[in-house]
Design a protein around this nucleic acid. Structure first.
Lengths: 246, 246
DNA sequence: CAGTGGTCTAGACCACCTA
DNA sequence: AGGTGGTCTAGACCACTGC
């Protein structure tokens, strides 16, 4: 029977002992740990106390149980892939495609009340509207309309928005580093104009995605709407039941 | 003493009862629920059984405890910063809607090669096909087709898939706790059958979402396809440039 | 068959809170 | 002082696993 200090709850000490062995790799993924009854004897406690410790370790993603077999060390989940905040250029490169763009329009506009509210603008502040048709391997994939307050990026008209990533320009020229974004995905169908631009038929499905992007301090910087050809693009995301990152 | 059916574990039934009261707003945020001893008497079970139920509800964010005072209903999460792995029932609850379901079909089928590969099945293994029409506040929202290998959940035909969450059944009856899932989102349009079921017009846009869900050890358990009315549902996700959490 | 985790009992003592 | 949740005991029966 091992010795336990009496300062902390027993189940907590048992938790620590097991976690320590996992973190130091003394216990490796898919190793079976001693049964609950064995551990109860080992530490001189009741089985429920051991179970209490194991319950929490299972909850925290260190262990998993298989009824009738035993309790095992879970595989570390370092490779958690969340959807990351990237622009179209980076997005396509990661998929191994060649991105390119055609600038359809770039002008200053007076935002409507919805956009003004989203970007937290004063009544007289203008925004740039940047509309681009974007290609992957020379095939049109998405129509994108970006809206950025003029005071964030004065003179952006002189940048080449067909060859450069907008996010690269914001970062390099204006020191605006986007940190996070809230994004929504809906389905819609192509009208005549969008169908023509994307080379599809009217009524074909489009994945309509819009996002509001923020700086690290929570300042909204960019609102962007995208209409993706659904036959050439799908949005992928990993979902997790808990966010117990190890 | 209230009556409890003997099909599911007692603690799980208690869980459901309390959760139901929270869902229907019979119990409101910061309401105190009866003490553990009171509930043990009420249901004629031991205090540890009640505690087991409460533990899980605390873990799932429905309740919080204050030592010396009692157990209280938690406030709904203000904002889920990530998209979490949840079923339809939980998803709707978080949006403050009343979920319900209609079972359209439940049968064993021989999976095609694509599905067999996704679920890592042997050539002769069968899967359950569960097709449901699901409602929020009595309005049809989504058609869902779930595929689960038969050996994971034998006898699931006898479960009530209209009132119970599939994920709850997998967890309570089969000890299958889904841990993560890979999900894809596309846009499509409604055909005649889907339009009729969802009460929309042929050609209306649908958000087509499919996911493969895994246990913590990486075993694929469920493949599910969903066709959401795009006028009633949008998928939201937070994107981060880096994953420097904390 | 013995061993495992899943569930459950009927108690117990403690620290803490409220009155 | 009486009630609450936090911890713990020493048993029990079950379904399932592997041999």
């Amino acid at each position: 029977m091992a010795e336990l200090k009496d300062t902390l709850p027993i189940y907590h000490q048992i938790k620590q002992i097991i976690r320590e062995k996992i973190l130091t790799n003394e216990l490796k993924p898919d190793d079976r740990i001693p049964s609950e009854i064995e551990m109860a004897k080992l530490y001189g406690v009741s089985r429920m106390t051991v179970r209490n410790a194991l319950n929490e370790l299972v909850m925290e993603g260190y262990l998993y149980r298989v009824p009738g077999k035993g309790t095992f060390v879970a595989r570390p989940r370092i490779e958690r892939s969340f959807a990351l905040l990237t622009g179209f250029m980076e997005d396509m490169r990661q998929k191994g495609l060649r991105p390119s763009s055609k600038l359809l329009s770039l002008k200053q506009i007076i935002p409507d009340s919805v956009l003004r509210k989203r970007l937290k603008l004063l009544p007289n502040e203008k925004v740039f509207e940047i509309v681009r048709l974007r290609y992957a391997n020379e095939e049109p994939i998405v129509i994108q309309a970006s809206y950025i307050p003029v005071f964030f990026c004065p003179g952006i008209e002189s940048e080449n928005l067909e060859t450069s990533s907008l996010y690269d320009i914001l970062e390099a020229k204006y020191q605006l580093v986007l940190d996070h974004a809230q994004q929504r995905l809906e389905a819609t169908v192509a009208d005549e104009k969008k169908a023509q631009l994307l080379g599809i038929k009217i009524g074909d499905p489009l994945l309509y995605i819009y996002r509001l992007s923020f700086l690290a301090n929570g300042t909204p910087v960019e609102f962007v709407e995208s209409w993706y050809r659904s036959d050439r693009y799908a949005f992928e995301v990993m979902l997790y039941k808990n966010l117990n990152l190890r």
